[in-house]
Design a protein around this nucleic acid. Sequence first.
RNA 1: GGGGGCGUGGCGAAGCUGGUUAUCGCGCUGGCCUGUCAAGCCGGAGGCCGCGGGUUCAAGUCCCGUCGCUCCCGCCA
Length: 495
Amino acid sequence: MPRGTRACISSARHSRRESWTSPAIQAPTSCGAKGRSPWARLRRNRHGRNWWCVRPSRTLMRKCFQEWSREMRTLVSELPGVVGSTVTLSGWVHRIRDLGGVSFVVLRDRSGMGQLVFDAKPDVTVESVIEVHGSVAANEKAPGGVEVRVQSMRVVSPAALDLPFPVNQDPGKTSLESILDNRMIALRNPSILSIFRLQSTILRCFAEYLRGLDFTEIKTSKLIGTGTEGGTGLFSVDYFDTKVYLTQSPQIYKQTMIAAGLERVFEIGPAYRAEKHDTPRHINEFISLDVEMAFIESEQDLMDLETGILAAIFAGVRASNQKDLDAWKATVPDPELCARIPRVSHDEAKEIVSKETGKKVYEISPEGERALCDWAMKTAGVEAVFVFAYPRKSRPFYTYPAENNRTKSFDLLFRGLEVTSGSMRINRYDMLMENLQAFDLNPEGLKDYLSIFKYGCPPHGGFAIGMERLTQKILGLASVKEATLFPRDRKRTRP
RNA sequence: GGGGGCGUGGCGAAGCUGGUUAUCGCGCUGGCCUGUCAAGCCGGAGGCCGCGGGUUCAAGUCCCGUCGCUCCCGCCA
C-alpha cells in the first residue's frame, strides 16, 4: 500500500476529532439517484436539521413549476412515455433528411434529439427554432423506436443558411481555432455543449459536498489595490482616478473569513493571471474552486478533504453525466479508488520520475507530471497523485514551513496535469513577519492581511482546484480552452 | 521569455523536387427518390492559396518580413 493512503484509512487520529473523511466515497446528497429524497440525509444532518423552516415547501415548488412547464410543451426525452398522444414539441432543427415522398427532421431540445416525420420536405433551414404539433408513434424503424408524425409546423425563429460552424458534426474534425472563433454557434454542437453540462455537475457536487461538511460559501471582491504575491502577473484596471488589480486568488479573503470565525469556507469564482503563457493548459481567467479550513494539523488533512471532494465529484458525474462522458469516450475514475490516491513527497516524486523516465530529474517537468500519474495508475489504479512537502523557495511566503527547508504544501496531479495547489498557512504573526523578511517583502503593503494574524488566527490551510483543468482532464480534452465557455488567453478576448 | 510546426472556398484536408483551367470530403444549392438514421444517385455555385515584398520566363510551392493559429519548454489552477 502506498504510504500516502495512511491518513485516509487510519482512524485513530481522526476519531477524537471531527471527521470530514467519512462521506468521502459517497455520492453527495442529491447526486445519488436512488429514489430517496435528496434531502433525506440533510434532515438527519445536524447542520441541516431546520431546513423545512426556512424553505418553501418543496412539493409546492415542484408543483408550480411542473404545472407551468407541462402546459408549455413535451420534451423529446418524454416521447417514449406518451406514444399514441398528440404533442407539441419545440426545439432546433438539427438535421434534415429529405427522401422525396417522406422527410425526416431531427429535432434537438435540452433533453436530447428525436425524429420528426414530414410528408414532404419542410420549408426550414438547419438550426432554425421550430414548434411542431403531431402524433407520437412507436416505430421500429425510428431511432429510439419513437417518432412524431408532424401535423403542423411553425418556424419560431429561422436560421440563415451560412452557418459558420458544423453544429451537427463531430467536433473532433474541427480545429480549436474555429471552435473558439465561432464560439456562439459552436456551443450548439451537442458534444461541445455536453462539456458544460458536466462542468455544472462538478460545481454542484463541489459545493454540496462542502456544505454537507458545514462549510460556508463566500463571494469576495475580484478588485484589489495591491497584489499579495509580489505584484507579478496582475491585470491592472482603471478605477476612477487610480489603478487597481484583478485578484489572482481569493487567498487573503478566505483566510480573513477563517479568522473571522467561519472556520470552514469555500468560494467559486474567477481568478486572473496576467502571465503570457501560451499553452493548452493556461488561460488568463479561470474559475477557481477555493477551499479554506481551520484547525488542521498539516497538509495531510487538506489532502483528506480533497480526496472526499474528488470522490463526490466523480460519483456525481457518474450518476448524472454518463451521456456527456460517452460523447467524448471518457471515463471518470472510480470514486471508491480516490482513497487510494498515492501521496508522495516532492523528493520521492523526483525519484519516481527519474526511475520511470530513466533520466535524472532535478525538477518535476510536465513530462514528469505525466510520468507520475502513469506510475500512480500502475501502483494504485488511479491516474492521480498528491505531491507534498515542496521546497520553500517554490512556494509563496504564507506557506507553513516544515523541516529541511520544506513546506506543508501539496499539489494534486490528475491525468498528467496539476489541477490543485494548496498548503497549510502560517497563522502566527511573528512567524509571518520573519518569513516576510526571508522573502524580501515589505510588511507595509500587507498591513490589512497581517492584521488577521496580529489578533489571533487558528491554524488553517486550503487549496484551489482549477475548474476548467479538472473538466478538461475528466473528459480527456486536448486543451483547457475547450473546457472554458469563453476563454480569455493571451490573444483572445472575444467572443 | 526561449524553441518547433501550420495558414489553400463556410468546415476538414491534398497539392512531392516551382510549370497550363488549384484537387478531394463535408456543408450549401437544383433535380430524382416513401423509411432515412453521417441516406443515396446526377448536376451546380462558391477560392486574389493570411498579408506585404523579393527571386524567376513562370510562385499555393523558393527567400525575407509581418499578422494569425498551434505545439513544446520555463511558470502555473
